[in-house]
């Protein structure tokens, strides 16, 4: 079952999310779609060493990018 993260579009912006996906591409395949006011982010083929951390670290990274962009 793929790992999944939902982030509200009201707080996180799309360019920051795309930047985060690009920066995290070495850890696995990350895709997202916009659905009902949320970015639904799927993580596949994730490096087992970072599997337990990647969702929280990724969410923080997107938040950091969003704050920087504002």
């Amino acid at each position: 079952m793929p790992l999944q993260l939902k982030l509200s579009e009201k707080f996180y912006d799309q360019p920051s999310l795309q930047k985060a996906i690009e920066d995290y591409r070495d850890f696995g395949r990350i895709n997202y779609k916009s659905q009902g006011g949320f970015f639904v982010i799927d993580f596949k083929n994730i490096d087992p060493d970072v599997k337990s951390l990647i969702i929280d670290e990724f969410a923080n990274y997107v938040l950091g990018q969003t704050v920087k962009a504002k």
Partner: peptide, 16 residues
Amino acid sequence: YGAAYVFIDKVYIRFE
């Protein structure tokens, strides 16, 4: 946002 940015290296933070 500003306060959260100060702490993102110490704790995981999400907004809803």
